[in-house]
Amino acid sequence: MFRKNLKEVKVLEQEEIITLAKWGDKEAFAKLMYERKDVLYKTAYIYVKNKEDALDIVSETVYRAYSSIKKLKNPEFFNTYVTRILINCAVDMLKKKKVFVNDNEIVLLSKTSKDENIEENIDLYRAVDLLNDKYRTVIVLKYFRDMSFEDISRVMKCPIGTVKTYLHRALKTLRINMACPEE
């Protein structure tokens, strides 16, 4: 029971900080972003495979989130709100730059993964990059961010059934692309 109360207190504290940020408290907003900086950066990096671009995406995400935080209706959906902004920023950047994958950066990212073969990681990241935006987003949120279907549906603003369909189709496409990689 004591653990449950501590968890409830943390949730209440988090919601209070979010509410303060909505009211314009810059320190509260900075604290929220600081707590999420690593997850935001890693998610951005998965999209663009480039340190500088990932940092630009995070910066743009923070700016957009700060500019529009007053529109956030429910503090409990703050993570979803920020993730949605980040994905939009990443997709916008990819569309503007038409980024091509740099193999050296993929290898660096792959070295952080201890149990997998580097070549398999490179092939996987390339295959994920080939997916359309909706499928890529579902894969990134489900497997790289470990989000639930419910959270993904909030981020993508679509029904849970649609998220599951996107995931099924994305995995099917990945299996095909991984079995027969494009030359």
Rank of each mutant, 00 (worst) to 15 (best):
residue 63 Y to N: 08
residue 41 Y to I: 03
residue 104 N to D: 13
residue 159 P to F: 08
residue 48 V to M: 05
residue 54 A to F: 09
residue 43 T to A: 03
residue 8 E to F: 01
residue 9 V to K: 14
residue 65 A to E: 02
residue 112 T to F: 04
residue 159 P to C: 08
residue 3 R to V: 10
residue 169 R to K: 13
residue 95 K to W: 00
residue 105 E to S: 09
residue 23 W to I: 00
residue 34 Y to S: 15
residue 26 K to V: 13
residue 119 E to W: 05
residue 97 K to P: 05
residue 139 I to T: 00
residue 20 L to I: 00
residue 37 K to W: 00
residue 161 G to I: 10
residue 105 E to K: 10
residue 84 R to C: 04
residue 178 M to A: 05
residue 65 A to V: 14
residue 137 T to M: 04
residue 23 W to Q: 08
residue 80 T to W: 00
residue 174 L to C: 06
residue 32 L to E: 05
residue 49 K to F: 11
residue 71 K to W: 03
residue 21 A to W: 07
residue 108 L to M: 09
residue 119 E to R: 08
residue 166 Y to L: 15
residue 99 V to C: 07
residue 89 C to M: 14
residue 25 D to W: 02
residue 165 T to H: 13
residue 28 A to K: 03
residue 99 V to D: 02
residue 79 N to D: 15
residue 176 I to N: 12
residue 124 L to K: 10
residue 104 N to Q: 10
residue 155 V to C: 09
residue 68 S to E: 08
residue 180 C to M: 14
residue 128 V to A: 02
residue 26 K to D: 13
residue 181 P to D: 12
residue 80 T to I: 06
residue 41 Y to S: 01
residue 182 E to I: 10
residue 101 V to T: 03
residue 145 R to E: 14
residue 169 R to H: 07
residue 31 K to G: 02
residue 99 V to K: 06
residue 168 H to M: 08
residue 51 K to Q: 15
residue 138 V to K: 04
residue 50 N to S: 10
residue 24 G to N: 08
residue 8 E to D: 11
residue 48 V to Q: 01
residue 138 V to I: 15
residue 92 D to N: 06
residue 21 A to N: 14
residue 54 A to L: 09
residue 21 A to H: 10
residue 94 L to H: 03
residue 20 L to Y: 04
residue 148 S to Q: 08
residue 62 V to E: 14
residue 163 V to D: 06
residue 179 A to N: 13
residue 149 F to C: 10
residue 39 V to W: 00
residue 14 Q to V: 02
residue 109 L to R: 14
residue 180 C to E: 15
residue 112 T to E: 13
residue 101 V to P: 01
residue 75 P to G: 06
residue 141 L to G: 07
residue 45 Y to N: 02
residue 76 E to Q: 14
residue 99 V to P: 00
residue 82 V to C: 08
residue 48 V to E: 01
residue 51 K to C: 00
residue 93 M to L: 15
residue 17 I to H: 00
residue 14 Q to A: 11
residue 46 I to N: 10
residue 133 D to V: 11
residue 2 F to D: 13
residue 105 E to M: 11
residue 30 A to W: 01
residue 166 Y to T: 10
residue 30 A to C: 00
residue 168 H to W: 11
residue 173 T to N: 13
residue 52 E to L: 09
residue 156 M to R: 04
residue 40 L to D: 05
residue 69 I to D: 06
residue 98 K to V: 06
residue 36 R to M: 09
residue 131 L to G: 06
residue 16 E to W: 03
residue 131 L to P: 04
residue 95 K to T: 09
residue 73 K to Y: 03
residue 4 K to C: 06
residue 169 R to E: 12
residue 20 L to P: 00
residue 164 K to P: 00
residue 123 D to C: 07
residue 181 P to V: 04
residue 61 T to N: 05
residue 32 L to C: 05
residue 93 M to E: 07
residue 53 D to F: 09
residue 146 D to S: 12
residue 142 K to F: 11
residue 45 Y to R: 03
residue 50 N to W: 03
residue 90 A to R: 07
residue 74 N to D: 15
residue 97 K to Q: 12
residue 24 G to P: 03
residue 136 R to L: 09
